[in-house]
Simulated assay, not measured.
Amino acid sequence: MNLNEDKKAPLREKDLNMKKEMVIQYIGTASKTGGLKSSHQISPQEFISELKSGATDERLFSCLDSLRVSLTSNPVSQGLARTSATLCDTTGGKARYGLERILGEEKSLSLLARAIEPRQPNMMTDVVKLLSAICIVGEENTFEKVLEAITTAAEHRNIERFHPIVEGLRDHSVQLQVACMQLINALVTSPDDLDFRLHIRNEFMRCGLKALLPHLNIIKSDALDIQLKVFEEHKEEDMIEFSHRLEDIRCELEYPFKQ
């Protein structure tokens, strides 16, 4: 909306609720006329307002498509990362559609992986939440794509691939700690192969998670407790499965000819 100063002045005097309503109405008009397709002109706040406005399917799909374009054609920023995560939180049953559209762009995961930045805790919280959701609800090979994106981003920084995620657990933000544990659980539990699960979990432990777990366990947070419990339960289940495998091998070595 290109307005001169005379027209901007009365708008600035309106209360916040009125301003929000005007933004929603503006985006609604833009989506019907195709204006939302120029996603570089729309701020993250406008995307969020549209997603929260209870839009019809046609308007919602148009907004999601514009969000996908914006995410993949602009540099990663806090606003874009927050908008992507808001997609999952605000669209309810349409979240899967939004995730599929994001995954439809080749660069989406690499951009998100590069945004795992502990120095920007608010952005990182939303990014790791989104990556967790992608691992959980994505197609069978989505986990490998997420892991590859995280690996590539770490190689560009010349650091261990899980270092930024573990560093997020050191932050004083409980929300970030919960989100990081969610992503760790998603990455560790996604593989069907036991050896791969053990490998991913052990890599996290060597990267600093083992030393942090005692400190995380004393933090008073129900959400964090749930994620830590999930981590320990899956760890125990995998160890039981691994011990059974070792027992089978031992029996085969002791009684090689027994049928």
Score class of each variant (00 low, 15 high):
76 V>H: 02
241 E>F: 11
93 G>E: 15
2 N>H: 12
188 V>C: 07
154 A>H: 04
14 K>P: 04
115 A>G: 08
70 S>E: 12
15 D>M: 03
18 M>E: 15
7 K>T: 07
156 H>D: 10
123 M>S: 12
240 I>P: 02
58 E>P: 06
202 N>A: 03
190 S>G: 03
58 E>F: 09
10 P>D: 03
3 L>Y: 07
40 H>S: 14
87 L>R: 06
33 T>D: 13
117 E>H: 12
183 L>Q: 04
161 R>G: 05
241 E>P: 01
97 Y>L: 15
22 M>Y: 03
189 T>D: 09
244 H>S: 11
118 P>N: 08
232 E>C: 06
79 G>K: 01
147 L>A: 03
203 E>R: 04
141 N>K: 12
199 H>F: 09
100 E>S: 06
114 R>L: 05
5 E>P: 03
202 N>M: 00
48 I>N: 12
88 C>D: 13
246 L>D: 08
184 I>E: 05
113 A>R: 05
112 L>W: 07
95 A>R: 15
33 T>F: 12
150 I>W: 07
33 T>I: 11
147 L>G: 03
155 E>A: 12
207 C>L: 01
244 H>T: 09
202 N>P: 00
71 L>T: 15
65 D>F: 10
33 T>H: 13
116 I>F: 00
7 K>Q: 10
203 E>L: 02
67 L>I: 13
238 D>F: 10
116 I>M: 02
99 L>A: 10
172 H>F: 05
130 L>F: 09
63 C>S: 14
78 Q>K: 13
240 I>K: 04
65 D>A: 11
154 A>T: 11
53 S>D: 14
55 A>C: 08
190 S>M: 14
9 A>C: 03
29 T>K: 14
31 S>D: 06
230 V>L: 08
80 L>G: 15
8 K>L: 15
123 M>P: 02
106 E>F: 05
177 Q>R: 12
212 L>F: 03
208 G>R: 03
218 I>D: 05
66 S>Q: 06
4 N>L: 03
94 K>Y: 15
193 D>M: 08
117 E>D: 15
227 Q>L: 04
